[in-house]
Design a protein around this nucleic acid. Structure first.
Length: 257
DNA sequence: AATCTTGTCAACCGCAATAGG
DNA sequence: GCCTATTGCGGTTGACAAGAT
């Protein structure tokens, strides 16, 4: 039998949205807010399924969308995040204010993929296309990251209010280990009323903002995932008690451009 | 000018995760 | 704990535009 369709397909429009439909959707959401996508179409007088309305709003009509070309900084950030997260477009989008997962996915498939290939980098594994035949499981899962971000790219600082650690550590470790400082909350997202904005100086994005807890130490993502001796954390707790941190040692001869 | 090819991106589809009863 | 409804995500498609022939 299978599951029932998300909506009565016989009575819904498909394809490109008209201006009238857009206006109805915008007006409804302005009046009632987001959510209840299932019942929204009928309530808003739209012959669309809820899914379609949600997608239209999120990808096109939301007022906080940036639109326009991606900057070099965004490019670099997407590449870095893809290297860590793989095709988790919504997670990547969460780190790029004003960008949607769909937009990033499209941009990746049409621009960045080609860009990486032209540089001789496999866009899936983020490794040089030559000699990348045998990959370990962690590598296939995107744990290994290519070093494709130019040293002078200001991603870490400008795009992320200083959370990316590019300061201070201009020692040997800086050349040996790329600290992406990609923090993921271990705990449920805290609603704004519970979290004074100034409370978490080390986390900028709302989605990554951990709540206070009794956690006593951060966790290296490699160790958490069970990869033995990642080398970067040496099993030591990470100062920020609420985050995973990912480190990837550079390989011999592999440098930051 | 007409046709073909390629690139772009909005939208759809199916599945998985989550919420609620 | 189970079942169903709903939401969210990622892969894919198809319409349209731009460029090439």
């Amino acid at each position: 039998m299978g599951r029932s369709p998300c909506c009565e397909k016989a009575h819904t429009n498909k394809g490109a949205w008209t201006k009238e439909e857009d206006q109805k959707l915008i007006a409804y959401i302005k009046a009632h807010g987001e959510g209840c996508w299932r019942s929204l179409p009928s309530a808003a007088g739209l012959l669309r399924c809820g899914k379609s309305c949600r997608l239209r709003w999120i990808n096109y009509l939301r007022p906080d969308l940036k639109r326009g070309n991606f900057t070099e900084e965004e490019d670099a950030l997407i590449i870095k995040l893809h290297g860590l997260l793989g095709n988790k477009w919504s997670l990547i989008a969460g780190r790029l204010p004003g960008r949607t997962d769909n937009e990033i996915k499209n941009y990746w498939n049409t621009h960045i993929k080609r860009k990486l290939l032209s540089r001789g980098i496999d866009p899936q594994t983020h490794r040089p296309t030559t000699g990348a035949a045998t990959l370990t499981a962690p590598q296939r899962q995107g744990v290994f990251i290519p070093i494709t971000v130019p040293r002078d790219t200001a991603v870490s600082d400008s795009a992320d209010d200083g959370r990316m650690s590019s300061d201070a550590s201009h020692d040997e470790d800086r050349d040996r280990c790329l600290d992406l400082d990609l923090s993921m909350s271990l705990l449920p997202h805290r609603s704004p009323k519970q979290s004074p904005p100034s409370e978490s100086p080390t986390t900028s994005t709302a989605a990554a903002t951990p709540s206070t807890s009794s956690y006593t130490g951060g966790i290296c993502l490699c160790c958490h995932l069970g990869f033995q001796s990642c080398g970067a954390c040496s099993g030591q707790p990470i100062p920020n008690p609420h985050v995973f941190r990912y480190f990837r040692p550079l390989e011999e001869g592999q440098g930051i451009d």
